[in-house]
């Protein structure tokens, strides 16, 4: 076998160098600068932490169960409707929504859009910046705080105003039902949800900041609607103060 010239020999035999630079690739490996300094073995620390959380939760649950009994009303009777008839508390946001728009919009389309949006969040905001950091940045924290305050004010106001002057009733017969029951509520809610986003757009937000606004509006709205339906709706599904319900109705008994 003829000797190859050194120029052609890519991997010379007998060399002490056992590695070679093949190509430069932009990227990072999982363990770069994640030295052993910051890591500990999961066993036993994580196992003990999980055990402590479980024991703590059990203790709180047992204590609460000793103080407060699960509710049990009379035998189910299809002939006697309870007043108000309420869904379980986590669906009271949905039931509250039903008061403000056509059931197809408030019971199916809007919740469906919300679930699809929540599932799509990581695909709409696919940058890795700020992963693992509460609110990503001080600016993100500020955006979240102001959006939460905004939603906490405007959503209860919407519920009360829409209850006092319901366009569905006031515009009955004046405009088509579709406009009064579906279009107007969707437009009003759409403006409420998108308004903080429009304000934010002036400062050129990134995808994460847009998600912070949208998720915060949806999350705080869900909380407000759930509390409104669960605590503030009394007989006839009318709005009352929780401590001032007629007929001795106590919303907390619905848990």
């Amino acid at each position: 076998m003829a000797e190859q010239s050194p120029q052609q020999e890519a991997f010379p035999k007998g060399s002490v160098k056992t590695y070679n630079l093949v190509e430069v690739v932009r990227g990072r490996t999982n363990m770069i600068e994640k030295g052993p300094d910051n890591t500990i073995f999961s066993f036993p620390v994580v196992a003990i932490l999980e055990l402590l959380i479980t024991l703590g939760m059990s203790a709180v649950l047992v204590l609460f169960s000793l103080v407060k009994n699960a509710p049990l009303e009379d035998l189910a009777n299809p002939l006697v409707t309870t007043d108000p008839a309420k869904a379980p508390w986590y669906f009271m946001g949905l039931q509250e929504m039903l008061e403000h728009a056509h059931p197809l919009v408030s019971g199916i389309i809007l919740p469906g859009v919300m679930v699809l949006f929540v599932m799509a969040i990581p695909y709409l905001d696919n940058s890795r910046i700020g992963s693992g950091q509460w609110f990503t940045s001080p600016r993100g924290k500020k955006i979240t705080l102001w959006t939460a305050i905004y939603t906490l004010i405007i959503m209860p106001a919407y519920i009360v105003l829409d209850n006092l002057f319901p366009p569905r009733e006031l515009l009955r017969g004046i405009v088509p039902d579709f406009v009064a029951q579906s279009l107007i509520p969707v437009v009003i809610l759409g403006i409420i949800v998108l308004l903080p986003l429009v304000l934010l757009m002036r400062s050129k937000p990134n995808a994460r900041e847009v998600m912070l606004v949208l998720f915060t509006v949806l999350f705080v709205s869900a909380v407000v609607f759930t509390l409104s339906g669960f605590l503030f709706r009394g007989p006839g599904f009318k709005l009352y103060w929780p401590w001032d319900m007629p007929n001795g109705y106590n919303p907390l008994n619905n848990l």
Partner: peptide, 10 residues
């Protein structure tokens, strides 16, 4: 009970 029946109905 009544609570269960009407919550599921709603």
């Amino acid at each position: 009970d009544q609570l269960a029946y009407w919550a599921i109905t709603v």
